[in-house]
Design a protein around this nucleic acid. Structure first.
Lengths: 335, 335
DNA sequence: TTGTAAGCGTTATCAT
DNA sequence: ATGATAACGCTTACAA
């Protein structure tokens, strides 16, 4: 019923081995033969059975993308970059979310990944995350996006620099009382937010400005989280005149909080975010732009290279992409 | 090296057949035996080979999600709903984007889907799209999200009603000169935008208001597209006093265009969108909310049912989820 | 360059 | 309830 390599072989008058070689573009196949086989395959509307191929070859031809979120801008944008590259390479993309945020108790990714993918792409998993550790223990090529871990290739931006740029921008505008809205806890090691915080501290200290932990809040990288964090800052005794927000989405929330308090971004308090979200321009938000889709593309390509090279986690170390400060109306000289 | 069902069978002192039954929870297995087998499997850290299982059973245990976009809010949100359900059901999610928007000439989905998934979930593919037709010709269970096609189960909202609600809201506010920003071409049959347009026309005609095609523009469902469309409307001889925009993202662009012209949403021109995008509230945008993540969840669940029932496209017809008008500051009584 | 044939690790049929 | 064993459809040494 379903047509197999056997049928193609018979129709083309060759062996299944030759069909296999011809169709996969291997060398050592007479071009005449190859052409004939290809033609027959098309005529018969032959489609290879991935399962059989995988079983026989040991390769799955698919890569797993592990991400804590799907619907958030950063993750969706990275994912779209990854998808483009993988589809182009003829690889299957197995999408797997890890995160109990939506209530479900999810199985750890490692067991779900075993034997079903050739490589893994992990988006913004904290480098010390035990789930990540388990995945790495699987021993397959792995690439990290947004975070760094020794010995594992990946793509990030220079988060320290991003934090420094954003903060320095505020300092340059004359601000001395500068607050921070982070994600969860800036103390976690090696995460993007920690690095961004370090950049903030560097800039402040270089300018001999006080780093006041009372002006540090967390917005959980969500709009509403940012709104709450900003509200907290606004109700603080001596509120900051400027705030470095570690993501645009949180900054959007912060802007909303300001409006609720009758305050105008840029005019009353300066706000600078990170990402250059699609809507940052619309909201006139100053931000440190990062090439999100490119991060996905490049990480995916690096993974394909690892796969071809055969060497797991070899050679390619962590790559840092450039960021760019984009000044808009949400930041202005201190009154 | 890699441990197989054979190893488990030997260690448990049973045949591979029994191991297979025991581990899959089939009936006709002594519970004592099952328990022992399970224990051995755990001890040996046995993981089934999906390829072998698929080859032998003919089922892939994975479903393909076909979408034109990944990074756009609606699609990413649907996708996250789908992913949650599938992961919960132990199904693999194969993500496949169709769209030449990012430059790549992509292979049609049907050949890429054949023999590698058990079912397909298509997000917002026009019902008359030849690619969709090819996918359906594959004869596997398929579910549509956001569009309807005779004989194919799916989940949508009542787009006619959505268009009517939005428009009627503007009419209720006293507007008589109402423009439209659609996606591509509202003439395409059965697409969401066509239905929304029909709803608009219904409302206008019921109110004895003129439907002026000069006040119909297209924003390609993007922010910048919406901006351009709005700009076009604004530079029109007699501009509308209110605009029904078929998606929030386009509405965001429209708002930006208004600002560029020194106009304020709600005050100078009323704007109502569709979606209730995460940032709609922030931008004070009135909109017709649709339960996007739910659409993904429900469609995925319906697909799982089809898979279990075994009947392709049987029973379950298209399901419509309720929408809700959310009134915010971007719509106000006509001056 | 091409063919032969032994796997690859399950599932499922048919006995027992 | 359990066991033998024939598929499942391809890849890949090894031969020729």
């Amino acid at each position: 019923m379903t047509i197999t390599i056997r049928d193609v072989a018979d129709a083309a008058g060759v062996s299944t081995a030759t069909v296999s070689r011809a169709l996969r573009g291997l060398a050592n196949v007479d071009e005449q033969t190859r052409a004939r086989v290809q033609q027959v395959a098309v005529d018969l509307d032959y489609v290879i059975s991935p399962s059989a191929s995988r079983l026989a070859s040991g390769r799955t031809g698919s890569i797993g993308v592990v991400t804590p979120y799907i619907a958030r801008w950063f993750f969706a944008t990275v994912l779209s970059g990854v998808e483009g590259v993988l589809q182009n390479a003829g690889m299957d993309l197995l999408l797997m979310s890890v995160s109990s945020a939506d209530g479900h108790l999810r199985l750890p990714p490692a067991p779900r990944l075993r034997r079903r993918v050739d490589a893994v792409l992990a988006i913004s998993l904290p480098p010390d995350d035990p789930q990540l550790t388990e995945v790495l223990a699987l021993g397959m090529p792995t690439s990290l996006i947004g975070t760094q871990r020794a010995g594992v290739p990946g793509v990030t931006i220079d988060d320290v620099q991003a934090g420094r740029m954003a903060t320095q921008h505020l300092i340059n505008l004359g601000h001395t009382s500068i607050g921070v809205i982070g994600g969860y806890q800036v103390d976690a090691l090696h995460t993007a937010e920690h690095d961004r915080y370090r950049g903030y501290v560097q800039a402040m200290q270089t300018a001999n400005l006080p780093v006041d932990r009372n002006r540090e809040t967390y917005g959980y990288f969500t709009v509403t989280g940012g709104e709450q964090a900003m509200t907290q800052l606004l109700t603080h005794p001596n509120r900051p005149t400027a705030v470095f927000v570690m993501s645009d989405e949180m900054a959007f929330g912060a802007i909303r909080a300001m409006r609720a308090h009758g305050l105008t971004p840029g005019k009353d308090i300066s706000i600078v975010g990170v990402d250059n979200h699609d809507l940052a321009e619309l909201l006139d938000l100053s931000t440190v732009a990062q090439p999100v889709a490119d991060m996905g593309r490049i990480a995916a390509e690096s993974l394909l290279v690892q796969l071809r090279t055969g060497a797991a986690n070899s050679g390619l170390e962590s790559l840092q992409l450039p960021t760019q400060l984009i000044v808009r109306g949400s930041t202005a000289p201190v009154a």
